[in-house]
Computed example of a mutant assay.
Amino acid sequence: MSSSYLYLHGWASSPDSHKARFFRQKFAEKGLICHVPDLNQPDFYHLTLSRQIKQAAEYLHPNAENIVIGSSLGGLTALWLAAQYPVVTRLILFAPALQFFSRCQQLIGAEQMRIWREKGELPIYHYGYERLETLSYEFITDMANYCDDELTRPIPTLILHGIQDEVVPFAHSQAFAATRPWVQCRALDSDHGLNNVHEELWGAVEGVSLLFQKNNQTNSPEFKS
C-alpha cells in the first residue's frame, strides 16, 4: 500500500513557516510529496478547529496509509482528524496544543477574553503574516466542543515536545501519553518553536515512517496542494 504524507502547521502560522518548508524539502529529497495545506484559508477571521479538521480531511487518501504530522494547533487537529477518519494510520506531533481551550484563555488573559467575548472578535498576532489579524470569538466557542479526554483511538503516535515550551507545557504531553500506551512522548531541549532541533524532528519522522523504503513520488497519490 502506498503512503500519503500530510503536514499541518500551527495556529497563526502558515505553510511558509520554517518547519513546514524544512519538511517539504526533506520529503522532496526522498522523492516524496508532503502536502502542507494553508489552514488560514479561506480567511483567518473564521478559523475554527472544526474547519481545520474538515480542510485536512480533504488531503486524506482512501487507499493509502495516511501519516499526519502536526505542529502545535496542527498537532491537535491531527489528533481529532485521526479520531474521526480511520484512514489516518500514524501521527507525529510537535508540541501539540493539548488542553488548548483552557490554555488559550490563560495566555490571552481574563480581560482580553472578556473583550473578545463581548466584541465577538479580537486582533491576534499572526506569525505567518507578521501582522495583527482579527479572529472571531467562534474560535473559542467551537474549541469548547473538543475535550482531550475523548481522544482514545489507539493509533501509533509519537509526540516530540520541548521541555522549555512556554506556550504549551511539556507536562501536557506527558499527561496525555501517560494514559495512552499507544502514545510515546519524547522530550527535547527546546521551546515551543522547536526551531533548534529540526534535524532531530526529521530523524523521528524517518524512524516512524518505515514506508520511506519503497515509496516514491510516482506512487504517491496526487492531491491539491
Rank of each mutant, 00 (worst) to 15 (best):
E118N: 13
K119G: 06
K119W: 08
L122Q: 11
P123S: 05
Y127S: 09
Y127W: 11
Y127M: 10
G128S: 09
G128I: 07
Y129L: 14
Y129G: 01
E130W: 03
R131F: 03
L132N: 15
L132P: 12
E133M: 14
T134W: 04
L135G: 01
S136A: 15
S136H: 08
S136I: 03
S136W: 02
Y137C: 07
E138R: 14
E138A: 14
E138V: 14
F139R: 01
I140D: 01
M143L: 15
M143V: 07
A144F: 00
N145A: 09
N145L: 06
N145I: 00
Y146I: 03
D148S: 14
D148G: 10
D148L: 09
D148I: 09
D149G: 13
E150L: 09
L151S: 07
L151G: 00
T152R: 11
R153M: 05
R153P: 04
I155V: 10
P156V: 11
P156I: 09
T157W: 03
T157P: 03
L158I: 12
H161M: 01
G162F: 00
G162H: 00
I163M: 07
D165A: 06
E166H: 12
E166T: 12
V167M: 08
V167F: 00
V168E: 02
V168R: 01
P169T: 09
A171C: 02
A171E: 14
A171L: 09
H172T: 07
S173K: 08
S173Q: 08
S173R: 04
A175E: 12
F176D: 02
A178H: 11
A178W: 05
R180C: 07
V183T: 05
V183Q: 08
Q184H: 13
R186P: 01
A187T: 04
L188Q: 11
L188C: 02
L188I: 08
L188S: 05
D189K: 05
S190D: 08
S190I: 06
S190A: 15
S190Y: 02
D191V: 01
D191C: 00
H192S: 10
H192W: 01
G193A: 13
N196R: 13
N196L: 02
N196Y: 00
